[in-house]
Computed example of a mutant assay.
Amino acid sequence: MRYLIAESNWDMMTLAQDLVTNGTLLTRTDRPEDLTHYMQIGQADLVVLAASQLGRDGVTLENLRNVRSCAPIALIARGASSEQKAAWLMAGADTVIDSQISCEEMLARLQAVARRAHGLGRPVLQYGPLRVDLMHRRAHLGDVRLKLTPKIYELLEFIALRPGRLVTRETLLTHIYGLENEPDPRVFDVYMCNLRAQLSASGGAVDIETARGSGFRFVVGDFEAAAIAA
């Protein structure tokens, strides 16, 4: 998943580094007022900002919601009162997290909010023999762990979170590389071929379908039987 995070203070910079260490894809800005711009040009699974930034430089929950109403928003606060938390939640935040909790709990809370936007109650996707562990960023086909580089894992995770939906090549590249320079198209094709080759061991239970000129679609042999963790 990719988070959009505003690094407006030391707590937020520390959190961003913890997320990078964990392997989470990040779009980072040290100008919270630019959050709406980044939300317009890219798709984020979660928006993370300091509650102390609200009301400054035009940053409000209402403005963020107007840009992308369905994007989950996590506010990070230090020692906020119950009344403050309630007001932020009523104004549009999906969660308010105390910045002083442990790194492990912080990462788990953020991911819980992000994955529930995809309808997932647990950090595991299960499609027949394919199991994708969102928390530990790995996948198994039956008892065999797939050999996935970080980029190929992100490719699999993105399409597996959107089964049956057409995903354009541009959307995939933007998700995986963010605002960085995109790779030579041939490199991306190698990633896709590698992933397809590993999924072929499923015997057709899961596959990646190419819609020529449009993009890709993650397909499951018996779509109705696909067990998405809930």
Rank of each mutant, 00 (worst) to 15 (best):
I5S: 00
A6W: 08
W10A: 14
M13K: 15
M13P: 03
A16N: 01
Q17H: 15
D18I: 08
V20C: 09
T21Q: 13
T21E: 11
N22L: 03
G23F: 11
G23A: 01
T24I: 15
T24Q: 10
L26R: 07
L26T: 04
L26Q: 03
R28P: 00
T29L: 05
T29N: 04
Y38A: 00
Q40L: 14
A44P: 00
A44W: 09
D45L: 05
L46A: 03
A51H: 06
S52M: 07
L54W: 12
L54A: 03
G55P: 05
G58R: 05
N63H: 14
R65L: 06
N66G: 06
N66Y: 12
N66W: 14
V67G: 00
S69F: 15
A71Q: 05
A71W: 07
I73L: 07
A74T: 02
L75F: 09
I76N: 03
I76T: 07
A77W: 04
A77P: 03
A80V: 04
S81R: 11
S81P: 02
S82C: 02
S82K: 12
E83M: 10
E83F: 13
Q84W: 09
Q84T: 12
A86W: 09
A87E: 04
L89H: 07
L89V: 12
M90S: 11
G92K: 06
D94G: 03
T95A: 05
I101V: 15
S102W: 10
C103D: 06
C103V: 15
E105M: 11
L107Q: 06
L110D: 00
A112I: 02
A112E: 05
A117L: 02
G121H: 07
G121N: 03
R122S: 06
R122I: 13
P123W: 06
V124W: 15
P129L: 08
P129K: 10
R131I: 15
L134C: 01
L134I: 10
M135W: 14
R137S: 04
G142F: 11
G142H: 06
D143I: 14
V144A: 13
R145V: 12
P150A: 04
K151A: 13
I152Y: 04
L155P: 04
F158D: 01
I159E: 00
R162W: 10
P163G: 02
G164D: 01
L166E: 00
L166M: 08
V167C: 07
R169V: 09
R169Y: 13
R169G: 01
E170S: 11
L173K: 07
T174D: 07
Y177R: 05
E180S: 14
N181D: 11
E182I: 11
R186M: 09
R186E: 08
D189E: 11
Y191N: 05
N194S: 12
R196D: 00
A197V: 09
L199E: 01
S200G: 05
A201G: 04
G203D: 00
I208F: 06
E209D: 08
S214Q: 14
F216D: 00
F218Q: 02
A226E: 03
A227K: 15
I228Y: 11
A229G: 12
